[in-house]
Computed example of a mutant assay.
Amino acid sequence: MNSTTTFDTPLALRHAIRERRWTGYTNHIAPHHVQGNLMIVPAAYADAFAAFCAANAQALPLLARSEPGVPFMPALGADLDLRTDVGGYMVFRDGELSSTPESITDIWRDDLVAFVLGCSFSFETLLRNHGVRLRHLDEGNVSAMYVTSLQTEACEPFKGPLVVSMRALSPADAIRATLVSSRHTMFHGAPVHIGLPQLIGIEDLSQSYGGHGLTTLREDELPVFWACGATAQLAAMHARLPFCITHYKAHMVVTDLRIEELAASA
């Protein structure tokens, strides 16, 4: 299937991901439904990670937390199975990436706790609804991510630099995007920085974190940076957790929640 494929419901999309009938990025395929970052940690670290999210809520807005050993989140989606429905996973052991499986059913454990965190893919719909052009979407791409020199507030053992996502916007769209996104803290809120990437420790826009996304600017564009949920991944790596799992880049948890409804209720 390609980026023009559509699904009647998020449930149909999740089943297609589970059955490997859809393997692409999720930002193009569920534009009206909330998507989230996935972080799965052993129960012994769950409360500390929740505290880290609360202390760094702009980067890590918490949408849901599972009970230990439970891979389902019915509040986010019918028949949502976090072991199979995310399209791709990154498994870390002692702070190092060990594998990128398509399913984590065979390594799921009774002590694992899952967190779903707000994602900027969701506010992109709101930006477009307000007339902001997102060139990376027009070109079938995703936003690039970067590791900054900005530090998160530590909640031991979790700490480390802030990760941001970048969108190339015209000056007028940068202003509009700031006004719109600032109202939606569950999707990272307002940008943390606009222009002059070197001021936040980004020396080369062509070198994105993960090696993907739109990284080139046109003469009439500014780089606009939002706090990013990938901050959690780096914090877990810095903590050298014995075991943790995240989603694979740009393959998010797709929920049944409608973006407009969640935005209106916030």
Rank of each mutant, 00 (worst) to 15 (best):
V224R: 11
E260C: 09
S99H: 08
G88S: 04
T185C: 08
F52H: 06
T152G: 05
D47Q: 14
Q58W: 01
D256M: 00
A174L: 03
G195C: 03
Y209H: 15
G36F: 00
P71S: 07
I104H: 15
A16T: 14
R167T: 05
A168H: 10
G201P: 00
C119E: 00
K159H: 12
A239R: 13
D81S: 02
T185S: 14
F225S: 01
D81H: 10
R109Y: 04
P68Q: 04
I29S: 04
H193W: 03
E153G: 06
L217Y: 06
M1N: 10
A16H: 15
H251C: 00
V253C: 00
W226E: 02
F225E: 02
C228M: 05
P31R: 12
D220K: 04
A64H: 11
G36Y: 00
Q58T: 06
G201H: 10
F225C: 00
G118A: 04
D8V: 04
W108F: 10
L217F: 05
F123S: 09
R109P: 07
A48L: 12
E67Y: 07
P157A: 13
N27V: 11
Q233N: 11
H238W: 04
A227V: 05
D85K: 12
T9F: 14
M1H: 02
G210L: 02
G195L: 02
Y209N: 15
L150S: 06
Q151P: 06
S98R: 13
A57F: 03
R218K: 09
N27C: 15
E139K: 13
A75L: 06
V224Y: 03
T4H: 07
A16P: 13
N2L: 05
F49C: 11
I200C: 01
R240F: 01
A230Q: 09
A54S: 10
H130L: 03
F72H: 11
F243G: 08
S149T: 11
D220N: 14
V163T: 11
L80G: 04
M1S: 15
L38W: 01
C53G: 04
I194L: 01
Y45S: 05
A172L: 10
T216N: 08
A51M: 08
S66L: 09
S120K: 10
D8F: 12
L262P: 08
Q233W: 08
G69I: 08
